[in-house]
C-alpha cells in the first residue's frame, strides 16, 4: 500500500470508520502514475489531478468544459449533430454498433463538445474533445463541429480555445475523416486572415490526424504536463526504427524542448493562463 494524501479526508479503505466500511466501488481510485490510493472526490475536487504526484488524469469532454468554463456559462452548439456511417463500415464489429456503444457510454453524440462560454469573464468559443468517445477519433462530426466553432469565432470576433484529446482520424470514415484535416485547417486559415486568436490546448493523448491538423496550428499552443503528443504513435515508431524510445519521448515537456509548443501548463493554471493570453492579444 502506498502513501495516501493527508490533505483530503481520504484515508485508506482499511482505516475507514466501521460504519463506512462497505464503501461503494469506485469511491477509491488508484493513481496510475504513483500507485497511490486516492479518494475519488478529492481527486475530482483537484481537477482530476493526483494530489500526491500531480499526475493529470484523462477527463471527458464534459468534465473539461466544467473545469474550464465559468460555472453555468457554457452554451453548447450543434450538440445534436451525430455521426453517420457513410461507408457502411464493418470490421470485427459494425461501425454503427461502435457508435451506439460509445454514445451510450458517454451520453454524447460524438467526441467533441463545442459552444460559447466564458473563461474568467472572457467570452470565448470553446471546443473540448472527448477521448472516451472512440478514442477521440476525428470523423465527420468532429471535423464539422470544430469547423463550425472556428467559423463562429471568426464571425463573432471571439477567441477560440480548442482542447484536444484524440488518437487521430477515425478509420471507419476513411477518406471522409482524412478530409476533415483539410477542412478544419482551411477554416483556421480564414480565421487567421480575420486576425482571430486560437489557443490550442493539447492533452493526453493528442496524436495522428488531429495533431497534424488544427491542434498544431494554435497562435499559442499549451500542453498539460506529460501529455503524449505526436504524429505517429510510439509503437509504430518503435517498429520502424527498431530501438527503444528515449525516456519522455513525445511527452509535452519533450515537445517544448523541441520548440513545438509554447508552454507546458498545469491544469490548475489553465484558466488563468488562457485568460491572460486573451488579454495580451487584446481579444
Amino acid at each position: 500500500m502506498t502513501q495516501v494524501s493527508t490533505r483530503s479526508w481520504g484515508d485508506s479503505p482499511e482505516d475507514a470508520p466501521p460504519g463506512k466500511k462497505a464503501v461503494p466501488e469506485g469511491l477509491w481510485i488508484r493513481c496510475p502514475a504513483c500507485s497511490g490510493i486516492l479518494f475519488r472526490r478529492s481527486v475530482e475536487n483537484n481537477l482530476w489531478v493526483c494530489p500526491e504526484c500531480q499526475h493529470h488524469f484523462r477527463v471527458s469532454g464534459e468534465q473539461r468544459v466544467k473545469q474550464l468554463a465559468d460555472p453555468g456559462s457554457f452554451e453548447p452548439m450543434n450538440a445534436d449533430m451525430a455521426p453517420m456511417d457513410p461507408l457502411n463500415f464493418i470490421d470485427l464489429q459494425p461501425y454503427k454498433e461502435r457508435i451506439a456503444a460509445a454514445q451510450k457510454k458517454t451520453g454524447q453524440n460524438d467526441g467533441v463538445q463545442t459552444g460559447r462560454a466564458f473563461i474568467k469573464g472572457r467570452r470565448v468559443i470553446l471546443a473540448c474533445m472527448d477521448f472516451t468517445f472512440l478514442g477521440g477519433s476525428m470523423g465527420s462530426v468532429i471535423g464539422e463541429k470544430i469547423t463550425l466553432a472556428i467559423e463562429a469565432a471568426g464571425e463573432n470576433n471571439l477567441p477560440l480555445v480548442i482542447v484536444s484529446a484524440s488518437g487521430g482520424a477515425r478509420m471507419m470514415e476513411s477518406g471522409f475523416s482524412l478530409m476533415q484535416m483539410a477542412k478544419t485547417t482551411a477554416a483556421l486559415a480564414r480565421f487567421d486572415d480575420q486576425g482571430g486568436l486560437f489557443i490550442s490546448v493539447l492533452t493526453d493523448p493528442t496524436t495522428g490526424g488531429v495533431t497534424a491538423s488544427f491542434a498544431m496550428l494554435g497562435d499559442v499552443i499549451l500542453a498539460e504536463p506529460k501529455a503524449l503528443i505526436g504524429f505517429a504513435g510510439p509503437r509504430v515508431i518503435q517498429q520502424t526504427i527498431r530501438q527503444e524510445l528515449p525516456e519522455g519521448f513525445q511527452r509535452a515537456e519533450f515537445l517544448q524542448d523541441c520548440g513545438f509548443i509554447d508552454r507546458v501548463i498545469a491544469r490548475s493554471e489553465l484558466r488563468s493562463e488562457i485568460s491572460s493570453i486573451i488579454d495580451y492579444a487584446g481579444k
Binding site: 497534424a212 505526436g230 523541441c258
Partner: peptide, 16 residues
C-alpha cells in the same frame, strides 16, 4: 514515423 521526424515536428509540418 520515426524519432527524428517527431523531433523535427512532423505533425506541425503537415498541419502547416
Amino acid at each position: 514515423p520515426g524519432l527524428k521526424a517527431e523531433e523535427r515536428g512532423q505533425a506541425e509540418a503537415i498541419a502547416l
